[in-house]
Each structure stands twice: as structure tokens, then as C-alpha cells.
């Protein structure tokens, strides 16, 4: 058994939430640069230029990329040969509290759906846990903004709706969202499992490397087709029209009931902030 000191978990969460809110991932910056070169309309090009200039300013470390520094989502993988003494969820939340305070990040979490009193420290994080073999702990940490999350959806299609039904749902959802989720977006799609599993699959899909594709041929083809079709919608940067509506489409799937075809679409704004760390 390998012992993990929970203060290490707290520290890595604290450092991670600060880092991702000031430094946009280089692979994402490269995609936005490519999109800018591809835009013909002046207003769309200028929006992408501003997005690039913004990440340069934020990288200096004084002002976060976006005022919505999100609610924290953690995909936690715990190796079964790891020994943890204490409450790892508490350690993660302590890291969130310290990071959001020390990093001058906005506290965007309220306690109750109707009373809406702010927790004042951005806790609690939303934590999904998986047990895996090995003696490591892996945390994939994201700061997820509210604007793009609000445009996300879960729909229970029927099996005979098939691949065409999924395509139509995705295109309609993104077209109707328009400029609200801050395009150019990244689209995470979860197909299968059941009602809640599809949503988790969609969220996990958003955390994949930007340049990877599904290892299932049919799913990979669907990712490619949807990428092309979404960019033909003409929504464009911030909804003002243009060539770039999405930067990537990622689909994860899981076996499902014979009666079901659950589909979840999780939308990520252009400021995709997440990081994977291993302890």
C-alpha cells in the first residue's frame, strides 16, 4: 500500500484551479489561431483576435481569463493500492477554497436552489470517483462556467432514432444555443449508459485531448461529421456568424438498455479550463 498525504491533494487542487484560470492550454490556443486564419468576416475575426489577446493578458497572472471562474468538477481516480487516511473529498474542497481565495477567483456557488446564498469559497466541488488498479491517484480538474453548462441537455432518444436522430439533436441544440455558450465551443457528447451515465460520459468527453479521436470507427466518423456540420451552421464566434462554431467534437459511449438511446450534450465555451494531475 502506498500512503497518500491528503495535504498533497489539497495543494495540487489549489495550484491547479489557479493555473487553469490564468493559463489557457497551448493546444487550445493553437486551434483558436487556426480558426482566426480561417475566418473571412471582419467581426468574427476580430472576436477571435480578442480571445487570443485576452489569454496573453491573463497569462501574466493578475487577471483571470474570464470573470466566470466556474464551479469545480473533479474526476478522481483512486488506485486500489493507495492508502488514504482521512476524507479525500474534504481535502479536495479545501484545495478549492484555498485556490479560489488566493487566486482572486470568483465565488460562483450558491447553497440552495431558491435561497441562493453564496458559499463564499466556491466549494463544494462536484466530484466523480472511480476505483482503478495501481498505486496512484489521478485528478482531472475543471473549472466549468455556467453559460455553456446552461445550454447543455440530456435527451432520451429511442433506439430506432439511430445515428440520424443523434445528429439532428446535436445540431438543433447547438443552433438554438447560438451565441449564449460563448462559441467557438467544444462539444462533449455522451451516448448510452442510462439517464445519468450519459451526462457523465459527455462531461468526460470534454476533458479528452483536443487532438485525439474515438477509437471506435463509427463514433470517430460521427465526431468528424458533426464537426463539419456544426461549423456549417454559421453560428460563428459569439453567435455573430462565421466559419467557426466549434473547435472540437468528442463523443464517449457506453452499453445501454435495449429500450434506450440516451444522449447527453455538454457544451464547453472557448475558454476550456481543465488539467490532469497524478499523485
Amino acid at each position: 500500500m502506498r500512503k497518500i498525504d491528503l495535504s498533497e491533494v489539497t495543494n495540487i487542487v489549489k495550484e491547479s484551479v489557479i493555473k487553469i484560470n490564468y493559463e489557457l492550454d497551448n493546444s487550445l490556443v493553437a486551434l483558436i489561431q487556426k480558426a482566426k486564419a480561417n475566418e473571412t468576416k471582419e467581426i468574427s475575426k476580430s472576436i477571435l483576435s480578442d480571445i487570443l489577446e485576452n489569454q496573453d493578458i491573463a497569462r501574466e497572472g493578475n487577471i483571470p481569463l474570464c470573470q466566470d471562474t466556474g464551479i469545480v468538477v473533479v474526476f478522481l481516480e483512486v488506485g486500489t493500492s493507495v492508502q488514504i487516511e482521512g476524507d479525500i473529498y474534504e481535502a479536495i474542497n479545501e484545495g478549492v477554497k484555498q485556490g479560489y481565495n488566493q487566486g482572486y477567483l470568483r465565488k460562483s456557488v450558491v447553497k440552495h436552489p431558491f435561497l441562493r446564498e453564496n458559499t463564499k469559497d466556491n466549494s463544494p466541488a462536484i466530484i466523480h470517483t472511480k476505483l482503478v488498479s495501481g498505486d496512484k491517484i489521478k485528478l482531472h480538474i475543471a473549472s466549468k462556467g455556467g453559460g455553456s453548462e446552461n445550454m447543455s441537455t440530456v435527451v432520451m432518444l429511442t433506439p430506432t432514432d439511430g445515428i440520424e436522430g443523434v445528429k439532428k439533436l446535436v445540431l438543433d441544440t447547438i443552433f438554438n444555443a447560438g451565441g449564449k455558450p460563448c462559441p467557438p465551443i467544444i462539444v462533449g457528447i455522451g451516448i448510452g449508459g442510462n439517464f445519468e451515465k450519459s451526462a457523465i460520459l459527455a462531461k468526460e468527453a470534454l476533458l479528452r485531448d483536443l487532438d485525439d479521436s474515438s477509437n471506435d470507427n463509427i463514433i470517430k466518423q460521427l465526431e468528424d461529421e458533426l464537426y463539419t456540420e456544426i461549423n456549417k451552421l454559421g453560428v460563428g464566434p459569439m453567435g455573430v456568424g462565421g466559419e467557426t462554431t466549434c473547435l472540437a467534437v468528442k463523443i464517449n459511449y457506453f452499453p445501454m438498455h435495449i429500450a434506450s438511446l440516451p444522449v447527453a450534450i455538454n457544451i464547453q465555451c472557448h475558454s476550456a479550463r481543465h488539467i490532469e494531475v497524478i499523485l
Binding site: A58, N62, I63, P64, Q67, T69, L105
Partner: peptide, 22 residues
Amino acid sequence: YVGPTPKRDGFSIGSSGPTSSY
């Protein structure tokens, strides 16, 4: 329509972009 991030000393305000208007 904005809810800024906390301001650091020496700065006029924190990060201050728009939120969805609808």
C-alpha cells in the same frame, strides 16, 4: 450584465466579461 472576479490591489477591477443576457 457582469459579475467580476475579486480585484487585486493596484488594479481597478478583476476579470469583467459579460454574462448571458436572456
